Amino acid sequence: MTAGAALTTRSGRAVPAAPFTHLVRLTDDTGLFEHARHATVRREHGYCTDDVARGLVVTSRELDPSAEVLRLAERYLAFLTHAQDTDGAFHNRLDFGRTWTDQPGLGDWWGRALWGLGTAAARSPLRWIRQEALLAFTQGAARRSTDPRAMAFAALGAAELLRADPGNEPAAELLADAAIAIGTPGPDPQWPWPHEKLTYANAALAEVLIAAGDLLDDPPALTAGLRMLTWLLEIQISDDRLSVLPSAGWQHGGPRLRHDQQPIEVAALADACATAATLTGDQIWHTGVRRSIDWFLGDNDVGQVMWDPATGGGYDGLTLHGPNLNQGAESTLALISTLQHRTPG
């Protein structure tokens, strides 16, 4: 979902439109390459369903996609349907020789595949993409993962479908089961999180509870999700700027590190805040979206931009000494996803 983020940062920098240039560079006729050395594709590392699914999310979310963006969506959809087995599970890793190197499973990549398929089924301007994505989503939505985070990613796709088709029963059942799998906040105000460790893309879990509360008419879930997201946003603000949890995560009762910060954390927070802003209209969530955008544009702990305007690529992480200048798929997709919440006026 998109929310009303400003066209300029707090320091007056212009907010660019979401760039697809590097995503095109990372994509061939098969799929989306996972890694890059600076802006140069590393073909030897192959493709993964995780990134292709996120590619389908951002290409499907474009309000007025160009022909080039639509072609990307077509390739990503073809990759995901090829990755899916007859039982609804998905392969994750395809090498450059076009051979799957793993068995189909129900890990995070299954969840993200359903996120991409649900988004395409709900939002693509092309009818045939919507139809094909719905078929694959429905097949995958019959399965359940034992991992709450995989369930959360899948539920984001289910929520997209329910907004477009409130009567979609497989999507409603998946969203409800995901909310149960995520759990609810505990009583401790210092740690109102359902789990003992914060890992990655944490805001996605809060977003699912918020979506379940709204779409399934479940006020307690909505309250729980907003409470989780409020805390998550508060603990990631430092000196009035966003300072997201590092790749090592944060264990309840343990020390909190500041680096390396990953763009996926920022993108997940932007998405969740945008959803909360749409439902509540509260300024705190609009501010959360803006701070997420600002993080990429240099309003972060190191004060350096986290993307390359010359290539359109997002940098892979923020270290104590500045950005990791590699521009892989995950970080570039996080940049695009966050900037999609930029709205004119």
Rank of each mutant, 00 (worst) to 15 (best):
R13W: 08
V15M: 10
P16V: 12
V24I: 14
R25G: 14
L26R: 03
T30V: 15
H35W: 11
A36L: 08
H38N: 13
H45R: 14
H45F: 13
G46R: 02
C48S: 11
V52L: 09
A53D: 02
T59L: 10
A67Q: 13
L70Y: 08
R75V: 14
Y76C: 01
L80F: 07
N92L: 06
G97L: 12
W109E: 14
A120V: 06
R123C: 12
P125N: 13
L126G: 02
I129Y: 01
M151A: 04
A152I: 01
A154K: 03
A158E: 01
E160S: 15
L162E: 00
R163Y: 01
P166N: 06
G167Y: 04
A171M: 01
G186F: 07
P189L: 05
P189A: 08
W193L: 04
L215A: 00
L226E: 00
P246N: 08
H252P: 02
G254N: 06
I264G: 01
E265T: 12
V266E: 05
C273L: 06
T275L: 13
T275K: 03
G281Q: 10
Q283V: 11
H286C: 07
T287L: 12
W295G: 02
L297R: 05
L297K: 06
V302K: 11
G303A: 10
H321D: 14
S331K: 07
S331W: 03
A334K: 10
Q340C: 10
H341R: 15
R342N: 11
P344I: 13
